[in-house]
Amino acid sequence: MKKYWFFVIAVGFTSCLEKYDFNVLNLNEGLVVEGSISNVSFNESQGFPSVGRYFQVELSKTSDVDNQRDEKVNGATVKIKTSEGQEFLYTESGLDDGIYLLKDDLFHANGTAEYQLQIILEDGQLIESDWEALPAVENTLGSLEYIEDSREQYVFEAGEKVIGVGKGIKLELKVPEGDFEENQLVKWTFDPFWTYSAALLDSDSPIKKCWVSSNLYLKNVVLGKYKKGGFGQELFFIETKGNWRLYDYFSVLIHQEKLSPGYYQFWKDLEAQGDKGGLFDQPPFGLSTNFTNTNGNWTVNGYFGVVNESTVRWTFDPENLSYIIEDDLYDFCLANARFDPRLPADQCYDCRSHTLGTAVNTPPFWWEE
């Protein structure tokens, strides 16, 4: 019997559960589909504020080679069909990464239609999702507050990574008051953004300051299910000591999505299987899916979701802390840059070499000093 593996995201209520590659038992080749749409168009997403995001679908193929990443699936035809007779075609990113983008500035899901994701592979296999509708629920983001806290985590002592207690803050969302007839099924995700300055450059250098985004930091997903509001929901914890992301400017786009029961159960299944234990325990498989292969023998993993989205940009204000975050980058660069794995020396002389995220030395259009 062959082994195949696919790419999953483990989720939890208040903890960061890492992305892993797992081996699963499967007799057939398979396709992994990651994608959803929401009620917020590309143009509307620029008002978060952000540079904007197009809806995307990522396709990968399960593999019988242990400990390797999925083979990305390129050359497919990917489209959204609506119950109103419209079709919207995705285009490949052009990077051979299996990512397809719906480059329509105005497209968004609405409450008057149902939506189906259709995928035609190069060999003619046709994969279709069930018809999905936008959840008809109110989606109001509550107020946000950070609270000083400390957690056991990895810290650096004398250049070595050890377990210690780290100072930090937890961000808490105050879920609005309310009693609901049906369970509110919620998913929160996070897109961090910060500025970084190369410590050993003059202030007028064009490569002194960069604007940085990352899909690896704060990559946890938080799920919620409730019928009564008025409580505090922890979203994430960030360390403050030695966290260079916080020295100048740090913000997070917080996405709150209301999900359908089927899509919520898919994420809960991932969470439950991730809670079974460590990497060497029984791997997750047999997750729910709303995809069907209509004319081929490939299995399909994943779920096409239509979500009700509300997003806000939260900005960290260090003035509310009871202590001062020391900016030690200049002294650190002078003394330790060649020896400490957290900051390769190039980052002290060129902000574009910043390794914690994707760094560019021009501000986004929405940036205001």
Rank of each mutant, 00 (worst) to 15 (best):
R338Y: 14
F291H: 03
E34C: 00
V175D: 05
G159S: 06
L356P: 04
K103F: 04
L216N: 13
V306L: 05
A199F: 05
K187H: 13
S213N: 03
R69S: 15
D70S: 11
V40N: 03
I325P: 06
A133V: 03
T292W: 02
L106W: 09
E71W: 03
L223G: 09
F237K: 04
D269V: 09
W188C: 07
A133F: 04
F231Q: 04
E319D: 14
L141V: 11
F316H: 06
F285H: 11
V221I: 12
I238T: 12
E234A: 05
N336Y: 13
T358H: 11
D331R: 15
R342D: 01
H108E: 01
P364E: 02
V162R: 14
D350G: 10
Q256L: 07
F280S: 11
G278K: 05
V51C: 01
S41E: 01
T189W: 03
W267G: 06
L173T: 05
A272F: 13
Q86Y: 03
D21K: 03
G305I: 00
S50N: 07
R53K: 02
G124C: 02
K3E: 11
A136Q: 14
V222R: 15
Q233C: 00
D191N: 03
R338D: 15
V11G: 10
L89A: 10
I325T: 06
I147P: 01
D179V: 14
P344Q: 10
L343E: 11
L279R: 12
L126Y: 07
K276N: 12
G124K: 05
F55H: 10
